[in-house]
């Protein structure tokens, strides 16, 4: 009985989140599409022509997986952090906290909403990329599964940020000072083989490096790391952050007085 009730609660929460994404499409879908189009034109087309090839493929094709992943990462994270913190700040998170919904349904509902935006934007960016270069997906299962898992991972990370945030500045600090640098240094625009040995070793500590390379393997069939390692790293972080989110929502840290 409660499974059925919780399922209805989950669907309601996901519908509400999707409606929010659609209601403010000018903020959620359009800006990343414009930004990525500029990346493709400037880095891929103009500068890329001079660079030539990277790891055996032309530079435009090389950067496509990284830019798609960058969109998935920033939009999953951004959707969660703005929606969840907005609900906390506006106090309408209380609608959920006083309801009978268990913590895992609240976490799952918000994560599904954030995943939806991350994957929609990732799909839109892929369509834009197709206007600039031909992409033959090497392994559709790996490509899709890495995209889905990545959106889950960064939705969870966004939730942790939103739970601990007390003011709007707190939800801008992590994306600006941690997420963006790690994404740029995760091999979106270059192969790790270009780096000196020391920086190659440093890159090995960047989880986003594995995610981008895992996705690149799925799309292009080539990667700086093994696909197995990428899955293990992503799943380990999902387990860690998922457990943390469940514990935080269950105990009410940052949510209940």
């Amino acid at each position: 009985m409660s499974v059925k009730l919780n399922w209805i609660g989950y669907k309601t929460l996901v519908r509400k989140e999707i409606k929010r994404i659609v209601r403010i499409w000018g903020q959620t879908i359009v800006p990343p599409a414009i930004t990525m189009t500029l990346y493709f034109i400037i880095f891929g087309n103009l500068i890329g022509k001079r660079i030539g090839q990277m790891d055996g493929v032309d530079y435009m094709t090389f950067i496509v997986p990284g830019l798609v992943m960058m969109s998935v990462i920033t939009n999953s994270y951004g959707n969660m952090v703005s929606s969840f913190f907005g609900a906390k700040f506006g106090r309408h998170i209380e609608e959920l906290l006083v309801s009978p919904l268990p913590s895992y349904v609240i976490v799952a509902g918000y994560v599904s909403g954030a995943m939806t935006r991350g994957l929609i934007v990732g799909f839109v960016v892929s369509l834009i990329a197709m206007q600039f270069t031909h992409i033959a997906v090497h392994n559709i299962l790996i490509t899709v599964s890495i995209a889905i898992l990545t959106s889950i991972l960064f939705a969870l990370a966004g939730m942790v940020n939103a739970i601990f945030a007390e003011k709007f500045d707190d939800i801008a600090i992590i994306p600006t000072f941690i997420l963006t640098p790690l994404t740029y240094l995760g091999g979106v625009f270059y192969s790790i083989s270009l780096l000196p040995e020391f920086w190659q070793k440093v890159s090995a500590f960047n989880p986003i490096f594995y995610i981008i390379n895992g996705f690149r393997y799925g799309m292009l069939g080539q990667s700086d790391v093994s696909i197995g390692t990428a899955y293990v790293i992503i799943l380990a972080f999902i387990g860690l952050l998922g457990g943390l989110c469940l514990w935080l929502v269950h105990t009410g840290k940052g949510l209940r007085s």
């Binding site: 009730l5 209805i8 609660g9 309601t12 929460l13 509400k16 609608e95 309801s99 009978p100 919904l101």
Partner: peptide, 8 residues
């Protein structure tokens, strides 16, 4: 309607 959904 959303609140109703949270209650199943």
């Amino acid at each position: 309607v959303n609140q109703a959904g949270y209650y199943g």
